[in-house]
């Protein structure tokens, strides 16, 4: 009688084994040559999870050299990818998401109880057995900060040419189109033609660009808290660039620009709300611009007006207030130039205010970034590695 012995396949424990000779190929396929779209239909941050599952196996066999080697090669490869793609938002966002996910994994599976409070029983079984990787966590944390700074830099460079045009020059309120004097409108359009460049960017284009940044970060599985900080930094940049331009240009210091600005800022605020980003602190970074827009619109005649301006413009320096009042240009018979005595009144009222007396905003200022710990609910043994990654030399253990 024939007996068939059925061999039960050993359960996958969420570890990946490879021969040391294959480390270079692993890093090449998973980091150096990785394109974000290859893993777009899979679990977000799949490369980070795969790397961590390889680290777990090296830890399991107690091979500290293998752990060292893989982590060093990985960090090295990520740095090179970033250097090669130093103006590519998508690549930078992708590696920020993956580096911070790898960092979260090193914490979540460290065995340190402080990081395990949200772990499932299965996740606790998957904790590292032999090594404490706290020093590598520090390296990955520093690397994440570097990548974040690159991401902000890339996004700012993309937005830079759009800001003045969309915030101050384009006419997003249709009814305002006829308010500007002919000279101004002609100058703008002839400037564009002479330059051979595209017609000015609209607010819609700026918002579309912000939307693209946001969607890319979300698609890559970047922690929402980090995405919020990127958006806040970009709003700071919109504020700084727009305000500086306003402070240097007579032709935009008018009542109608004030109206335009207020409308544009409300549209940006609406966008934040739509993306559930209104708690990010982004709109607070625009307070100086909001006040400048209001300053262009309020009455500037009586002593009461001066008092109102002083209590309104808390986020603007005295120098900025005076500059805007001096530049203020009436565009029709209902508006009037601000008198010297009115400006002197404002100066007298605010002379004791303690502030940094500078006219222009520091466009390079960056808020310190915080990376909150974000453990994942994903269980490592459920991960599937698509064949398209060319990692068939990895053995599931």
């Amino acid at each position: 009688r024939q007996v068939t012995v059925q061999r039960k396949e050993k359960d996958f424990e969420g570890m990946l084994e490879y021969y040391k000779e294959d480390e270079a190929l692993l890093v090449k396929n998973l980091v150096t040559d990785m394109k974000p779209n290859v893993v777009s239909a899979t679990v977000p941050c799949l490369p980070a999870y795969i790397l961590f599952m390889c680290i777990r196996h090296a830890d399991y066999i107690n091979d500290d050299q293998k752990v060292h080697s893989l982590l060093t090669s990985t960090i090295n490869a990520i740095k090179k990818v970033l250097k090669k793609n130093n103006d590519d938002f998508e690549m930078t966002s992708f590696w920020l998401a993956n580096t911070s996910r790898l960092l979260h994994c090193l914490k979540q599976y460290s065995g340190d109880e402080a990081f395990m409070t949200q772990n499932s029983a299965k996740q606790n079984e998957h904790c590292l057995k032999n090594f404490d990787l706290a020093e590598y966590r520090q390296v990955l944390s520093d690397l994440s900060i570097q990548i974040y700074q690159q991401l902000v830099r890339v996004a700012e460079a993309i937005m830079q040419p759009m800001i003045v045009s969309s915030m101050l020059e384009s006419e997003s309120i249709p009814s305002l189109a006829g308010v500007k004097p002919m000279g101004y409108r002609n100058r703008t359009s002839s400037f564009d033609c002479e330059d051979g460049g595209p017609a000015g960017y609209t607010l819609e284009a700026l918002i579309r660009q912000l939307g693209q940044f946001y969607t890319t970060m979300a698609d890559h599985g970047l922690d929402p808290e980090i995405g919020e900080q990127v958006v806040r930094q970009l709003f700071y940049s919109i504020n700084a660039v727009t305000l500086n331009n306003l402070l240097l240009r007579k032709d935009v210091c008018s009542w109608s620009t004030g109206m335009q600005l207020r409308y544009n800022i409300s549209q940006l605020e609406e966008w934040l709300r739509g993306k559930n980003l209104h708690q990010s602190g982004a709109i607070a970074t625009m307070e100086p611009l909001i006040q400048a827009a209001q300053l262009l619109q309020v009455k500037k005649k009586t002593s009461q007006d001066a008092e109102a301006i002083c209590s309104l413009c808390t986020a603007l320096s005295l120098q900025q207030i005076v500059k805007i009042l001096n530049l203020y240009t009436p565009l029709n018979e209902f508006e009037e130039r601000v008198t010297v005595s009115f400006i002197r009144d404002i100066q007298n009222r605010l002379q004791d205010r303690i502030e940094i007396n500078q006219l222009l905003v520091d466009t390079k200022h960056t808020f310190p970034v915080l990376f909150p710990y974000t453990p994942s609910a994903l269980s490592l043994e459920t991960l599937h590695i698509p064949a398209s990654l060319n990692l068939d030399f990895l053995t599931r253990v």
Partner: peptide, 30 residues
């Protein structure tokens, strides 16, 4: 519950030290 395991701290250079060691330099040149 089982006592928590003692794990060996793996020493790592800092990112700045890695940068000083030039490990991030392009090694593609001949």
């Amino acid at each position: 519950r089982p006592p928590s395991r003692i794990r060996v701290l793996l020493k790592a250079p800092t990112l700045a030290e890695m940068e000083e060691m030039n490990i991030f330099e392009d090694d593609e040149s001949p």
